[in-house]
Amino acid sequence: MTKINHTPDEMMTIAAARELKDGQICFVGIGLPSAAANLARLSHAPEIVLIYESGTLDTKPDILPLSIGDPELSESALTNESVPEMFRFWLQGGHINLGFLGGAQIDRFANINSTVIGNYSEPKVRLPGAGGAPEIATHCGEIFVIIRQSKRSFVEKVDFITSFGHGEGKNHRKRLGIDTKGPTKIITDLCIMEPEPDSFELIVTSIHSGVSREEISQSTGWEIRFANNINTTKAPSNIELGALRALQNRSLEATFLSKN
């Protein structure tokens, strides 16, 4: 047995960062997507362009922002655009090839819920809502999703479709006149899933080092299937772990130890 010296969250963030490449123009959600995107930029993808919906274009924060419009994002950006321009010119105009989202729930066809658990008019838990996600999900060339995996978050059918993934599967996006790819990779703390060609149902394509198939099945709210040619996600290297921990430590310090 090799000793595991990383947490599942670290594995997830590092696995997601590895999927990002130089040359991508990436629309970044706050929280987990932002951590992975900045880890990629500070390590193997220094030329990746990160855009946040606050209008901060090509931003290079040294610490992780708490909010979508922190001073760190604004001050390190190439420029700050107004929010209408952000959505109209840059997103709707088709300049962004990758959207990177999180969410509270995701279903077998990668539809995302960040609005409500339970009924909309009588919510069990009211979540923040849509923000930029519905249009990010259809206007970016493709979508990556990063989300912790459990039976509560990976459900047969989401309580509310905040952002459209592959709908009911097959050619549902095309039928709605959406010509972008939608979710192509779902990165969790246990594995990576991708939509199966033709059916567009999510299947596991890579299992994180040290994780079993049973764990994945037990953490999924439907009968999850595994690809025939399945990969193992390599455990984080010391360099990757060091870069992520340094980023997270200086971000925490900036938030909680600063004198305002």
Partner: peptide, 9 residues
């Protein structure tokens, strides 16, 4: 604008 495709809102 172009938006709200396929969503419950």
């Amino acid at each position: 604008f172009q938006g709200y495709k396929g969503v419950d809102l």
